[in-house]
Design a protein around this nucleic acid. Structure first.
Length: 413
RNA sequence: CGGGGCGUGGCGCAGCCUGGUAGCGCGCAUCGUUCGGGACGAUGAGGUCGUGGGUUCAAAUCCCGCCGCCCCGACCA
C-alpha cells in the first residue's frame, strides 16, 4: 500500500483524550478511529492487524477440529427466556435489549450459548453425533457500564466463541484441556505471554479458567507464583500476597484478560431441549463448554505490551505489513529505485507499506516508528551510491546496509 | 450510577474569571527554495465556539437544561 493514498495517514499529534497507550498509538497511527465511547472503527491498517490475529485464532481452532460458522447477532428473546437469562438482572445490565417499532423484543448477542444450543439441537440425536464443536469469530455487544482503555473494553467488540457438546463429562474434560493448549498456542503466536488463571464462573458456572497477560493497563489482579504452578484471579483468591503456596511465594500483578473458558454442564442444553440416546438407549442432555477469545482486545493488549516511547513494535505475526519502505528525498533515481523495490518485494509475496509521500526524512522515520512495522527499508541517494538500501528492525537500534539485489531474499524469509 | 475534567476551523490548543471585530501552532492549497530524524519563505482557503433556552443594546464568555467524550470509583460473560 502506498502511504500517500492511504485512507488514514498517521496524525502529527497524539489524540488528547486517549489516555491509554493502545488507544493513543492506535489512533495516532491511523489504525482505529473512535465513533463513540467504547465504539471504534477499524481502519485499513487496524483491520489488517485484526485479520492477522483472527487468522491465527482460526488456524488453531481448525486444528482442534472445530467447525467455523456464523450465528446471528440479533436475537429474539425466546431462547434467552428458555434459559432464564433474558430476565437475569446481571445479564440485563450488559445485554442490549430493546423493542422495535412494532413492539417486538430483541437482544444483541454478547455470547451465544442459547443460540448455538438451539442450532445444534436437531443435529444431536445419538451419542454417535458427539462430540461436536463449533466456533465463530464475530462482533459482540455489551452495554458496559463504563467503556474504557481503547480496545481493552468496548461496547462493540470482536469475539471468537467456541462451543463444544459432549456425551460425557470425561470427554468434555479432555477436550477442555486440548482447548487450553490451543489457546496457549494462539497467544504464543500473537506474541502474548498468557497465564492460565483460575477464576470464578461469573453468570455461567462456578469456576472457569482465564488467560491473562500481565500488564499495567489490565483491569484484573492476579495472584501467582513465579513457577507458574499457581495463579488465581483476586475475585476467588483467599490468601494474601507474600503467603506461600507449595513452597513458592505468592505475588500479585495487574493483568488483562484475553480469554476465558467455562464448563457449563447441561444448563443450556437442557434449557434448549437438546438430548441424545446413549449406548444403552437412555436419553441424556449433552454437557457443554464455551471458550472465548477477544481478538480485538488482543490487538489492544499487544500494543500495551509491545511499544516504546516512539510507537508500536508489532510482533512479525500480526504486523499490518512486513516491510515499511521509505524513500528519502525528491531525487528521481531514488524514487525509481524505491518503486522498483516496491514492485519487486510485492511480487516476491512480501507485504509492503510504501511511504511515497513528499515528506522530510524526520517525518517519515517518526511515522515508521509510530506505525511499528517490523522491518524498515530506507532508500536514499546515500544508500544507492553503494547500490544498497538500509535495513532496520523496529525492535533494534542498529541499521545495516543490504545490497539491492539481496533485499527480496532477506525479507521474504 | 456517584465524583472530577473537558467540548472553540481537519488535529492540538489559547480566549471565558472581568460580555464588545474569533485567535495561535500543526495540517491543507499554490509557488519557490530545501531533502537522512517532525525544513524555510510567500500567498491563500477553512469556524453553526457541542446543543436548546434565558439574561443583556450586545454572549465563545454570565445563568439553567440537555447531549457527548476522557479519567477515578461502583461494575467487569
Amino acid at each position: 500500500m502506498r502511504l500517500s493514498q492511504s485512507l488514514a495517514k498517521p496524525l502529527r499529534e497524539r489524540p488528547a483524550d486517549a489516555d491509554s497507550v493502545n488507544a493513543a498509538y492506535l489512533i495516532q497511527g491511523g489504525f482505529i478511529d473512535q465513533l463513540g465511547a467504547g465504539i471504534y472503527n477499524l481502519l485499513p491498517l487496524g483491520w489488517r492487524v485484526y485479520r492477522k490475529v483472527e487468522n491465527i485464532i482460526r488456524e488453531e481452532m481448525d486444528a482442534l477440529g472445530a467447525q467455523e460458522l456464523s450465528l446471528a447477532a440479533l436475537h429474539p428473546p425466546a431462547p434467552w427466556k428458555a434459559s432464564g437469562r433474558w430476565d437475569d438482572p446481571e445479564v440485563r445490565e450488559v445485554m442490549y435489549q430493546f423493542t422495535d417499532q412494532h413492539g417486538k423484543e430483541y437482544g444483541l448477542g454478547f455470547t451465544h450459548e442459547e443460540i448455538v444450543a438451539q442450532v445444534a439441537k436437531p443435529h444431536i440425536r445419538s451419542y454417535r453425533d458427539l462430540p461436536l464443536a463449533a466456533y465463530q469469530i464475530q462482533v459482540k455487544f455489551r452495554n458496559e457500564p463504563r467503556a474504557k482503555s481503547g480496545m481493552m473494553r468496548g461496547r462493540e467488540f470482536m469475539m471468537k466463541d467456541l462451543y463444544s457438546f459432549h456425551a460425557t463429562q470425561d470427554d468434555l474434560d479432555r477436550y477442555y484441556e486440548r482447548v487450553k493448549g490451543a489457546y496457549l498456542k494462539v497467544y504464543e503466536r500473537l506474541g502474548l505471554d498468557a497465564w492460565v488463571v483460575e477464576a470464578s464462573g461469573g453468570v455461567f458456572s462456578k469456576y472457569s479458567h482465564e488467560f491473562q497477560v500481565f500488564c499495567e493497563a489490565g483491569e484484573d489482579t492476579v495472584y501467582y507464583t513465579e513457577d507458574r504452578k499457581f495463579a488465581q484471579n483476586e475475585e476467588i483468591f483467599e490468601g494474601k500476597e507474600g503467603d506461600k503456596h507449595n513452597g513458592a511465594v505468592v505475588r500479585s500483578a495487574k493483568a488483562a484478560e484475553i480469554g476465558n473458558i467455562f464448563k457449563l454442564g447441561t444448563k443450556f442444553t437442557e434449557a434448549a431441549g437438546v438430548s441424545f440416546l446413549d449406548e444403552q438407549g437412555g436419553r441424556q442432555a449433552p454437557v457443554m463448554a464455551s471458550y472465548g477469545i477477544g481478538p480485538s482486545r488482543c490487538v489492544g493488549v499487544i500494543v500495551e505490551t509491545h511499544h516504546d516511547g516512539k510507537g508500536i513494535i508489532w510482533p512479525d505475526a500480526v504486523a499490518p505489513f512486513a516491510v515499511h519502505l521509505v524513500a528519502l528525498g525528491g531525487d528521481n533515481t531514488v524514487k525509481g529505485a524505491a518503486e522498483k523495490l516496491y514492485a519487486g518485494l510485492q511480487s516476491a509475496g512480501v507485504e509492503v507499506l510504501y511511504d511515497d509521500r513528499d515528506e522530510s526524512a524526520g517525518v517519515k522515520f517518526n511515522d515508521a516508528d509510530l506505525i511499528g512495522i517490523p522491518n524498515r527499508v530506507t532508500v536514499s541517494k546515500k544508500t544507492l551510491e553503494k547500490d544498497s538500501v538500509e535495513l532496520k528492525r523496529r525492535s533494534e537500534d542498529q541499521a545495516e546496509l543490504v545490497e539491492l539485489k539481496k533485499v527480496p531474499a532477506r525479507l521474504s524469509a
